[in-house]
Design a binder for these strands. Structure first.
Length: 512
DNA sequence: AAATACTCCAACCGCGTCTTA
DNA sequence: ATAAGACGCGGTTGGAGTATT
């Protein structure tokens, strides 16, 4: 028994990372003594090689699962939870060790733009990688880029996500096949309601909504948002992956069909019971509490979460906050209004900071960020609300004619940033004003397309920047303010959406 | 060379969901 | 219907390694 175990463990050990080998250092025994809890029945801290071998042997004989039995039957002084984690993160034979490849890194960024902090779901799309690995990578990367003054998401990710979304919407089908026949309830049934959802994600607090408007918003997700979730290859597989299929690998197809329809826990409307206007309260209370869980390390330069709101979770959040109010003071999933207010105060500061990648710090950081590909050097339009353009537009935006604008703008920014990067190497001081003057128009155009928060801050919306917009405009004025710029973005759809929405006057979210 | 700061990541913890009796 | 146990997820922490002063 032990021979086979050891043989297997040798294989496993060869797969372990250097850091793990460090942790399984010769003084394991001493540290294990220190880590004994209470009467010594359970141990915490780093795993030793012997413990790994025992666990591997146990799993080989008994399979995964039933982790609490491991401690009983194997002699390991570890709780089942710890055993499961050790197996999943280090001992699984299908684990891929070593640094992330550039392809994997890019995939993670794309997935994060779509999913947010759904590490386990992201791990499903990255075979051989664990949620913990991905999470650590993301947190590390985020910190690094924030230190560097770089935005989190590169614009091409925004555009790609947008294009994916647009293509899927144009096709009128879902990636894994047409589901409309079997599940017509999840398709948009009328009107263009998506822009309303966008505005929710722009941090519109329930305090700003009249109930009727909120009801309108609550009308939305069961249909429209679900559709938007289908736009992505793996939208929301079940939160739990059961033992029968411990580590399913996304095959580009069928899983979605299974996952999306069988998940009746986290998102109630997935089970087809979501009539668009039926009892939103009970619907909401059945739903999983939002798990946005932004850590301080993910706060963007504006002090707001840098993570985009994942599609369904964002709706969860809104509903929860709208219906329950600020019950939860936890800053991990609240504070949208605060973010809006804070954003308005810090927007200009952050803009100048973000756009000045050629400042001393940023330039140094850009050059030191070795793992980042060239594409990451692009400025990344990220909403201070934590909604990157990728998330906001990709998840909720109907077809637009934005692509050509993006192409032009992106090109302009690319040229600009290349020039800035070159200039940063030469310049030691702040001699950027002339160049910034020349490039400002292009950059702001891009920023406003990619950052709805800037749209709100722009004169279009009566925001700051000397736009002089009224904050007490009538409904008609609101429509005017909105439809003009957004009409440019959503030439056909937005007017319909705006007409559909019953925007209250003084309490309109656009008065923010 | 030593001290300090910073980075990375394995492991832990709390909580939510699901299953089962 | 419900309580208990099992499991999974995401955030956080602690410590070792590395870089900087």
């Amino acid at each position: 028994m032990w021979i086979s175990n050891l043989a297997f463990f040798v294989k496993m050990s060869n797969m372990t990372s250097e850091s793990e080998e460090r942790m399984n250092s010769p003084n394991d025994e001493a540290s294990s003594e220190r880590n004994m809890i209470g009467n010594g029945t359970l141990k915490k801290g780093p795993w030793t090689s012997a413990e790994d071998a025992i666990l591997v042997d146990y799993v080989n004989k008994n399979g995964e699962g039933n982790w609490n039995a491991v401690q009983k039957h194997s002699g390991l002084s570890r709780c089942g939870k710890s055993c499961r984690l050790r197996w999943a993160n280090h001992l699984r034979p299908d684990l891929k060790k070593g640094a992330f490849t550039p392809e994997e890194e890019r995939r993670i960024i794309e997935l994060h733009a779509k999913m947010g902090n759904k590490w386990a779901r992201m791990a499903i799309e990255l075979p051989g990688r664990t949620d913990n690995e991905i999470k650590n990578f993301w947190n590390t990367r985020t910190k690094r880029r924030q230190r560097a003054g770089l935005p989190i998401y590169p614009p091409d990710v925004c555009l790609q996500t947008l294009n994916d979304n647009t293509q899927s919407q144009n096709m009128g089908t879902f990636p894994n096949g047409d589901i409309s026949s079997s599940h017509p309830e999840i398709l948009p049934n009328n009107n263009f309601q998506i822009p309303a959802v966008e505005f929710k994600n722009l941090g519109l607090s329930h305090e700003l909504f009249a109930p009727s408007l909120l009801d309108n918003f609550l009308d939305i997700p069961g249909n429209t948002l679900l559709g938007s979730n289908f736009l992505f290859p793996i939208s929301h597989p079940p939160k739990r992956i059961r033992r029968s299929d411990p580590y399913p690998i996304y095959d580009g197809g069928g899983l979605n069909d299974i996952f999306l329809y069988e998940d009746s826990g986290s998102h109630a409307f997935l089970n087809g019971n979501t009539s668009s206007s039926s009892d939103p309260i009970s619907w909401a209370t059945k739903m999983e509490l939002p798990s946005l869980q932004y850590s301080s390390t993910q706060m963007g330069s504006c002090g707001a979460p840098s993570s985009p709101l994942p599609s369904l979770e964002s709706i969860d959040t809104l509903i929860q906050s709208a219906l329950i109010g600020h019950q939860k003071s936890d800053n991990r999933n609240s504070g949208l209004l605060e973010a809006v207010l804070y954003e308005s105060q810090t927007l200009k500061t952050s803009n100048s900071k973000n756009s000045n990648c050629n400042s001393n710090d940023a330039a140094a950081a850009c050059s030191s960020d070795d793992n980042d590909d060239d594409w990451e050097a692009y400025g990344d339009p990220m909403s201070p609300l934590g909604h990157s353009a990728a998330s906001v537009f990709s998840e909720y935006t109907p077809h637009t004619s934005l692509d050509e604008h993006h192409d032009q703008s992106l090109e302009a920014i690319s040229v600009k940033q290349e020039a800035e990067a070159a200039a940063a190497a030469d310049e030691t001081g702040g001699k950027q004003s002339e160049r910034e003057d020349n490039d400002n128009d292009n950059e702001m155009m891009m920023m406003k397309y990619c950052r709805p928060d800037l749209l709100l801050d722009s004169p279009w919306f009566g925001g700051g920047g000397g736009g002089g917009g009224s904050t007490s405009t009538s409904n008609k004025d609101h429509c005017g303010l909105l439809i003009d710029p957004l009409g440019a973005l959503f030439p056909d759809d937005f007017c319909n959406a705006s007409n559909h929405m019953s925007v209250p006057g003084p309490s309109s979210p656009f008065d923010v």
